[in-house]
């Protein structure tokens, strides 16, 4: 009985945590309207949440399959253009746009994966790099859909055909999707696919001996990563309401990788923390500092240096700081007890 209880607790604890996190985030529009925080903070936090969704997908790919995708920005951009085209140009409902704008990039992702995943792992990074270059070219040159360099616009989403969201409503929608993705990721990692991915990462030999089709699972984790990138793109489009080719450059893909590495590989909360560090710190802190704030590349350098430092000295990511602090505190207390005793 006791055993069952701990199991239930272990399994359901994260749900409550995720839900609580979502509720806290949902208070932000209220704070903005009360004038307690700045209007622009909502935009910053919303984009951090969107990048968290994207990074959660990529964390599955990097953390569990040990694969790197450099096409994240490209697939996100594709999501923005597709949903803008479907809702604004074709006038079709948001829900349909959401499905198509996630499915099409996923299909292209799977095709890219089919080519590159059969061989060495590092081929995927190169293949996705090439694909994202092609996608950017498409964003620029297919100007009859994308408007080329001038960019494309869309509106806040209208749910179910009648519920027109405003800025705050769209923000809440983003929060909803983030919590949903966090729950989905938690479930997947703790199910047989998650265990198969873990086994693959630890030992490809053991995985294939236990019947795990390595190629198929690599492809699966890449498809999921692409799907969440595109989902992030769709949400971005309907919140920012503007997309243009230069928003979807390699640097964004690198920043998303930085999110995972800095925050904590294979950790859901670590990924969200990473997004706040990578996209929040430059926006909220670096820009306000004297001298550094006026330098263009400061954010890039900050994230680049942080990536390297974390990999070299703290490879499990900054999310583990809390455990380390706990452990050290406990040690400290024990020492105290010993002295007292």
């Amino acid at each position: 009985m006791n055993n069952k209880l701990t199991n239930f607790y272990k399994l359901h604890k994260p749900y409550t945590q995720f839900l609580l996190f979502g509720i806290i985030l949902s208070f932000l529009p209220l704070l903005v309207s009360l004038g307690i925080v700045k209007y622009s903070l909502l935009t910053t936090v919303a984009s951090i949440l969107i990048y968290s969704i994207v990074a959660l997908g990529l964390n599955l790919l990097l953390g569990y399959s040990g694969l790197i995708s450099l096409g994240t920005a490209g697939f996100m951009g594709m999501g923005t253009y597709l949903t803008a085209f479907i809702t604004a140009d074709l006038g079709l409902p948001f829900e349909l746009a959401l499905i198509i704008s996630v499915a099409v990039p996923m299909l292209i992702g799977v095709l890219t994966g089919l080519v590159s995943l059969r061989i060495e792992g590092y081929y995927l990074a190169i293949a996705t790099l090439a694909i994202s270059e092609i996608l950017r070219k498409v964003f620029i040159e297919f100007d009859f859909i994308t408007n080329g360099f001038s960019g494309k616009q869309a509106q806040y989403p209208k749910l179910l055909g009648f519920l027109q969201l405003d800025r705050n409503g769209t923000y809440i929608l983003i929060v909803f999707f983030l919590i949903l993705v966090m729950v989905m990721m938690h479930n997947l990692v703790n199910s047989h696919t998650g265990r198969a991915l873990s086994t693959m990462r630890g030992s490809e030999a053991a995985a294939s001996a236990m019947g795990v089709n390595i190629y198929r699972h690599r492809l699966l984790s890449f498809a999921i990563a692409v799907a969440f990138s595109a989902l992030g793109g769709v949400l971005y489009m309907h919140f920012v309401r503007y997309t243009y080719p230069n928003a979807w450059i390699l640097m964004l893909s690198l920043n998303i990788l930085a999110v995972i590495v800095i925050g904590g590989i294979r950790s859901i909360s670590g990924t969200v923390l990473g997004a706040f560090i990578v996209f929040g710190v430059p926006d909220l802190i670096l820009k306000r500092l004297p001298v550094i704030g006026s330098i263009d590349g400061a954010a890039y350098i900050f994230n680049g240096v942080l990536i390297i430092l974390v990999i070299l000295f703290y490879p499990n990511g900054l999310i583990n700081i809390r455990y380390d602090i706990q452990r050290n505190l406990r040690k400290l207390f024990k020492k105290g007890e010993e002295i007292n005793g």
Partner: peptide, 16 residues
């Protein structure tokens, strides 16, 4: 893989 990511971090530093 992490080594690859380090070289990606180098891109960010030099591009900054």
């Amino acid at each position: 893989v992490s080594k690859q990511i380090i070289t990606l971090g180098l891109i960010m530093i030099f591009l900054g």
